[in-house]
Design a protein around this nucleic acid. Sequence first.
DNA 1: ATGTCTCACTCGGTGAGA
Length: 262
Amino acid sequence: MKLATWNVNSLKVRLPQVLDWLENSPVEALCLQELKLADDKFPIDAFTEVGYQACWAGQKTYNGVAIITKTAGTDIQRNLPNFEDHQQRIIATTLPSPAGDIRVVSAYCPNGQAVGSDKYEYKLKWFMALQEWLRQELERYPRLAVLGDYNVAPHDEDVHDPKKWEGDILVSEPERAAFNALLSLGFTDSFREFEQEDKSFTWWDYRRFAFRRNAGLRIDHVLLSDALKRYCSACTIDKSPRGNEQPSDHTPVVATLDFQCA
DNA sequence: ATGTCTCACTCGGTGAGA
């Protein structure tokens, strides 16, 4: 089975691309971020028409997350229970798998704007709360997958020009420490479990022809708990939607779980 | 290059956020 994540930067604009992508890349679960639409505007009918179900936590204008699933999810959780926040950045659900139930989280971690800003402080606090919550989730659901836009490039190899970006937002040491603290709970950055091309990125600024120059960052990740990692046979970045008109500035990341191969 | 894209507010130009 495949699990995927994609920051679509407006589901209203990108819905045809998402439906097209699902048709060509069937997955058990597709985690979406930056829906930028209110709950009552979520295009649930478009997904049910093509055989998918969904759960979502929407918000007007900004943020918003969803999980598009083949089978109905249970035990749906919106937002971090331990963090007072009107911004919709988390949704989680439980899905059946051959190895038993797996817990899937779609996360849109704060961007942080600039190191030292109010939004940066919010980002670091939010990550602390995410860490505490995931620690509890892991106890309850050992098979746990956390997919999303983390807005952190974990290592210099995840940055097209590490010197230019040094200490900047998305790569600063406190942000990387917050990301590593999640891994310390017992998660693996599944992309790095496999051989990958140099300069593999998931996000490119819309400006300055960044995609054409491959001036990107790898900030969208699939974190798998130890109990799931053993089934993971591949993790890839799918740049194909960049060939569309009006592409998102992020591309999908897809992890394959093979329950025969454990 | 303050570079582009999206949405809100409101019908066109500006501000916020990424």
